[in-house]
Every structure is written in C-alpha cells, then in structure tokens.
C-alpha cells in the first residue's frame, strides 16, 4: 500500500510554532514514526509539506496518476479557504483522510468551515501530533480499509 501524507502551510514549523496548540514534535520526527509503522508490514508512506496551494494540488494530481492507495491530508489554513484542493481531492478515488493536529471546531469561528471535509472519507482531529501515527496504523492494519482504497 502507498500512502501520501500531504501537509499544508506552516506545518514545517511544527515543534516551534505555538507548541501549546501544536505540540513539541517536529514534522521530521512524526514522518519517521509513520514510515517505521508502515514499513514493518511492507507499506510505503511519503511525507510532503508545502506552503503553496498549487503545489498541494499538483501532489494530489500526482497521486491520481500514480494510483496511490491513500492520501492523508493536513491542509492546515488552506482547509478553510481552498476550493482548488477540494476539487483535486474529488478527482482522486483512493482512500482520503483529512487530518488536523488540533480540533478546528473548538477554535476561532473562521476555522469552523472546511472545504476538505465533504471531499474525503474520514476526518480525524484534535489528537495532537499522535493523530498521524494513529491514522497510518489503522490504514495499514485493517485490510478492509485497503480494499476500499483503489
């Protein structure tokens, strides 16, 4: 199974950016953990991060071309603004998870609307940076989810 983990703007600052909300773990350490979990059972996880909306759209299109099995996307602030990412996700038929470190619904009202949620299968939020490894573990451990993924 191939999984893309796509991260949006400011996620590269994890570990130092508002640690009271986002925790002290860096993206590098999260990615290392996830790759380790997946590779135990022979699965591939690729971590990406961009501050640019268009690059994120390109990666989703790339996942379509390469027939990647699942996308886990933390679109960060673009969650609340990007119809382009919504449209790209709609065109991707593999398994899709929207992921957030904090729970956007318990924060400022401008974070209550997500353009991503209606385009994905699953939403996971508010589990801290551990959310990444919980999602990867579930995707690789339960064949039933892989069957859904094309």
């Amino acid at each position: 199974m191939n999984i893309y983990v796509i991260n949006g703007p400011n996620i590269n600052l994890l570990g130092t950016r508002e640690p009271e909300i986002y925790g002290k773990e860096t993206l590098e350490s999260i990615s290392k953990k996830c790759i380790e979990i997946a590779s135990k059972d022979g699965h591939d996880v690729t971590f990406m991060q961009s501050n640019y909306e268009g690059e994120i759209v390109d990666w989703i299109q790339n996942a379509i071309t390469k027939k990647v099995d699942a996308i886990v996307i933390n679109a960060a602030a673009y969650t609340h603004t990007s119809i382009a990412i919504h449209d790209a996700l709609k065109s991707y038929s593999g398994y899709k998870v929207e992921l957030h470190i904090s729970n956007p619904h318990l924060r400022e009202t401008f974070r209550h609307i997500s353009y991503i949620s209606s385009a994905v299968d699953t939403i996971v939020a508010g589990l801290g940076t551990d959310g990444y490894s919980h999602v990867i573990e579930l995707l690789v451990r339960f064949p039933v989810l892989q069957n859904k993924a094309k």
Binding site: N103, H105, L127, L138, F142
Partner: peptide, 28 residues
C-alpha cells in the same frame, strides 16, 4: 450533524471510519 462545541476544551474528533472510528479513538 455538527461537531460538539466546547470552547477551550480539548476534544478529539474521528468521523467516517465506520466501526474503526471507535478503534482509532480507543487507541488514541
């Protein structure tokens, strides 16, 4: 269907994994 509102609280959220929503929540 709207998510629970409890401003200032820390609440996790898992939606759309079938019965595995519970499995993920228990692990978390």
């Amino acid at each position: 269907h709207k998510p629970l509102q409890a401003l200032g609280s820390s609440v996790g959220f898992v939606s759309g994994l079938g019965m595995y929503s519970y499995v993920l929540a228990i692990n978390a």
